[in-house]
């Protein structure tokens, strides 16, 4: 199992009341899976994704990622895990402005101590070619369309060859045609063996995944 979550709780204090954003979630995701997480806003899907992404730690429960228990790690250790095991794709792309597509893609390797510096550029070019933007390496985000920007973000997520890509509403800011392109790309990457966990509230986007998870009130209901 690539991802194994057992009896996970995440509780926030809101004044007197305790809010259970995650209320005893258990979930396993196998290698090469493509999971869509769905649910209304406030259902806990973002919290789940943040914890899956090692950006947040649970109140209780265990999280084995690629065989490593990460739920009690320090911030620096989690940063290392994110760098090595996870690729992020955001709704709003989160590219560095006034920075070329190539340099945006290179970024994760700067925090990867094991990555040989002289292979950085060549690999970034290959990743851009893989998402079909080999001829846009010098463009800054402002010179690219939304769909192109998201593809740059995907190239960036692939840079350190992580086993898992986490996508938070990857098509939320895109028109239909670009959305289809991105999902085609995701399916292709999934076929190449990359595990994808994607949060979305659009039915037709979720339909691209192999497996669907529906969340409500901090629990997985389907």
């Amino acid at each position: 199992m690539l991802i194994n979550i057992q009896k996970m709780f995440k509780t926030y204090r809101m004044g007197e009341n305790a809010v259970h954003a995650l209320d005893g979630v258990s979930l396993t995701i196998g290698n090469g899976d493509f999971v869509a997480v769905m649910g209304a806003s406030g259902s806990g899907k973002s919290t789940l994704l943040n914890i899956l992404g090692c950006l947040d730690t649970p109140t209780s429960g265990t999280y084995l990622l690629d065989g490593v228990e990460v739920s009690r790690m320090s911030r620096a250790q989690l940063a290392h895990i994110r760098n090595q095991k996870l690729g992020f794709v955001f709704q709003n792309f989160n590219l560095l402005s006034r920075t070329s597509a190539l340099e945006n893609v290179e970024l994760p390797t700067f925090y990867n101590r094991g990555f040989p510096g002289r292979e950085r550029r060549a690999r970034a070019v290959r990743m851009l070619e893989r998402v079909g933007l080999g001829n846009r390496a010098d463009h800054t985000p402002a010179q690219l369309s939304g769909g192109q920007q998201q593809r740059v973000a995907i190239a960036r997520a692939l840079m350190n060859s992580p086993p898992v890509i986490l996508a938070d509403e990857p098509t939320g800011n895109l028109d239909t045609r670009s959305s289809v392109e991105i999902m085609t790309l995701f399916k292709q990457l999934n076929q190449e063996g990359i595990t994808i966990v994607m949060v979305t509230h659009e039915e037709d986007i979720a339909a691209c995944a192999r497996r669907r998870i529906l969340m409500r009130d901090g629990q997985i209901v389907a």
């Binding site: 950006l55 940063a79 760098n83 970024l107 994760p108």
Partner: peptide, 9 residues
């Protein structure tokens, strides 16, 4: 973003 892709504090 830098933290998400692996920058430590």
């Amino acid at each position: 973003l830098r933290m998400a892709i692996g920058a430590t504090p």
